[in-house]
Design a protein around this nucleic acid. Structure first.
Lengths: 328, 328
DNA sequence: CATTTTTTGTCAATGTTTTGTAAAGGTTTG
DNA sequence: CAAACCTTTACAAAACATTGACAAAAAATG
């Protein structure tokens, strides 16, 4: 099914007629006699319809040619109409479970989607995974999608990867799908021109990018202007990106605990390169493993989903405050 | 404060009219009556348009000739317009081609965009880069976009990287932007359920993914069901993905010439793991460097843009032929 | 079953709005 | 100075709206 959630799309009667299969005259008659649809009007009086109206007329058309009297069903809700037709075509159908998504329901719904997504990951079915994600974004909204679906899902993938149930390719495939999704998420809330800038990456040796992706998406949703660099970059490169973009924050994800000293060395170098005016944030499953270095370098460590969100908002506030001072 | 001097290129109405296909008079009428575009003015009062305006007008033109009333859609955002047209081309595939998309013009136009995109890469401006890409896709169409803009651009980036004008981060940033664009490109032509499947990646040690991305996009546009895995994967992982997805082809990009034997070893292992029924395709700037191994293993080497396209179509044809035999 | 009444899709007549195009006359640009 | 722009005003075809009517089909009634 297509993603037609907005009511931004509006149509005049001829388009509606073409799409629904109901002649213009009849559309007007149904409105006049039974208020089957109640379009708004232009200032000049022309009728303006929504996607929902079209869907409605389509169903009404089907129902009438199925023997129902228009006067009886004209005021039915979309759901009622669907049921009507379902019951006819399949006489005894499945359980009708599409009803109101309350806030409490959302968590449950997200879990539901999460299971489906994990199954798609396990089956290595990128198409299905993307499809589930798309639907989930529409149904849950970007906010809930990230908090209740994406975040737990990535955790689960991280765990299962350690137990061997998943292979590295699974993670790569998932990263790939999520990366292409950033396009939808970003376009849901365009950020202001003067938003604070952030670089997101993972240090050299850290090949897992799921955590970094999550961080990037979250930051974008919190109104940051994020430049995502992918995984496995040396300190010099990351620092260069910070310079180029004039970023005021840098977020790294560390999800794999190594015993060599690469991460520590990279962090120290990074700090030296970017200086004290750029906030250095580190998250990821294995961040705790490097606690001594984090303390030494002066890193903000992400404690949890909500903690990161608070951090983002706090830093943004500080940024706007100092920005106003410099810009009288 | 940073220099936020956007709108690098500006056009007068005649150019806009030619490129968008909307007559000058009409462009002005749309502006006067519905504020469809809001160009700036020269000191003398002439209208000055941006690339975005052109993309916008092009989409509006398409939408109106598709039955939408201009007054209703004039103020839609670029994204809304894209959705509008996407939903329509899915239901009614007949589209009477609009005016003058002469091939010669397109090449020139693509070069123009290519320069702008490269400038954005050099300036490390991900947002501008994405914006240019989006406009270019609208104006050129996916096909031309890839052939005349993306492909040359990536070559240029590869070259400049070697000379040191660009750093690795530039490439990472560009990859990131292109990856999120795959979403638009993919949704322009949904592939059939039973399309042949392909895995795209780069072997271990090969960190540059631009070539692989290009290959993935091209294959998708040729009707393949592509699973893109990103860069730097060991043979076992890639082979596992091939097994999981039941892919009939595997494309690798090799853009960096190394003197160690890793690539050779990986290729040999891969061939052993995937067997003879899966086509192994290799492309990339440095593919020639490993010619002996390619011959030994039996690899199809990509010679050029058009060669790869032919290869894709040929393999797809073979796939469908053998598929029909097995599935009577 | 025959006759009325109601429902429903379609049309016609007449007036208004929308929308692409164009002409007239002045200004800017190169 | 010519070509390209600008603004204003106008115009006509296409698309809409409203009202009212009509006949076939369906339902109700006797």
């Amino acid at each position: 099914m297509t993603v037609t959630n907005d009511e931004s799309a509006q149509y005049l009667i001829r388009t509606v007629s073409k799409r629904s299969g109901v002649k213009s005259d009849l559309v007007r008659a149904w409105e006049r006699r039974y208020q089957a649809v109640t379009p708004t009007r232009t200032s000049g009086g022309h009728r303006v319809y929504t996607d929902q109206d079209i869907a409605r007329l389509k169903l009404l058309n089907q129902a009438t040619s199925n023997g129902h009297s228009i006067s009886q069903i004209a005021q039915f809700s979309l759901d009622d109409l669907k049921h009507l037709l379902k019951d006819e075509t399949l006489s005894t159908s499945q359980s009708p479970n599409d009803l109101l998504p309350s806030t409490i329901n959302k968590v449950h719904l997200a879990e539901d989607y999460s299971d489906k997504c994990y199954a798609a990951v396990l089956a290595f079915d990128a198409q299905k995974l993307e499809s589930h994600f798309e639907n989930a974004i529409v149904e849950l909204g970007a906010e809930s999608f990230i908090e209740h679906l994406l975040s737990p899902l990535l955790n689960k993938i991280g765990e299962r990867w350690k137990t061997g149930e998943l292979r590295p390719v699974h993670e790569h495939m998932t990263s790939s799908v999520i990366r292409s999704l950033t396009y939808i998420l970003r376009n849901n809330n365009p950020c202001p021109e003067n938003a604070p800038r952030m670089i997101v990456s993972t240090p050299i040796g850290q090949l897992h990018e799921l955590g970094a992706l999550l961080a990037a998406i979250m930051a974008e949703l919190c109104g940051w202007q994020v430049t995502y660099l992918g995984a496995n970059l040396p300190a010099e490169e990351i620092a260069a990106a910070v310079k180029y973009t004039n970023a005021c924050a840098l977020t790294l994800s560390i999800s794999f605990a190594t015993d060599d000293h690469i991460v520590a060395k990279e962090l120290r170098r990074l700090k030296k390169l970017i200086g004290n005016n750029v906030s250095l944030i580190v998250g990821g499953r294995a961040a705790g493993h490097f606690q001594p270095v984090l303390n030494e370098v002066g890193v903000m460590k992400i404690q949890s989903y909500t903690h990161f969100k608070q951090l983002l908002n706090q830093l943004a506030t500080e940024y706007y405050a100092s920005d106003n001072k410099n810009q009288p």
